[in-house]
Amino acid sequence: MATTATMSKRSLWGGGAEPFKASYGKLMMWFFLLSDAFTFSGLLITYAFLRWSAPQYEGDPSTFTFSTEYWPIPEKVFEAFPGLHGMELPLVFVGLMTFILILSSVTMVLAVEAGQRMDKKAVVKWMLWTVIGGIAFLSCQALEWSHFISGTDTATISDVVVNGIWKENYEIFGANLTFNQYGPPAFAALFFFITGFHGFHVFSGVVLNVIIFFNAANGLYEKRGHYEMVEKVGLYWHFVDLVWVFVFTFFYLI
């Protein structure tokens, strides 16, 4: 076995040419994102399937009221803005959240671009902005969830089971996993599950971004000679933005 190649240290890619001319890390990130896209597709399919097979409201949208009998109109559910109590501002807050996430995606591209130029100062600056954007998005989501859970001023009357006891004409405020004031139980359950799963992805992304931020600031990537880690985490961060684009359309617009 004279031809056996001996490698001095353990390497993740010991072969010759790189497949698809992409590094091992980037390629694996792409395939992870593909599998993650399958997971999110499963959730969105469930949402759309349940929604399209649920009773729809067919009256005039201006006279719409919440009921557990039919699916709500999303604009009527998501019309609150923190600090502006009682004002009807449909989809304004979620628009702000979308704007924040897209902007943090842009700052991430700028960090990647700076990394390709070996500009450590610019990488650190743009990574910091990306982290701030991610935290801002999560804070907005926390406000939205707390409003969704506590509910509006007027209750929805319905027959529900509370702690195992059947209650008729119960006043429902807000939402939990068994019933909600906005529509059928599945509506709130899907809201918690889909936006929660996405929020968890954003949270993991922020944690990764913070690690990359410190590594870049400490000069680790400069010593390594390249900023590929920024590109790999960038791919994940853009994916989180991409998923939000779909969640926004399916949950808030349609």
Partner: peptide, 16 residues
């Protein structure tokens, strides 16, 4: 499938 299930279960839309 969503439309088919809705039809099979006899779910009707809400008309005020």
């Amino acid at each position: 499938e969503g439309a088919a299930i809705k039809k099979a279960r006899g779910i009707e839309n809400y008309v005020p």
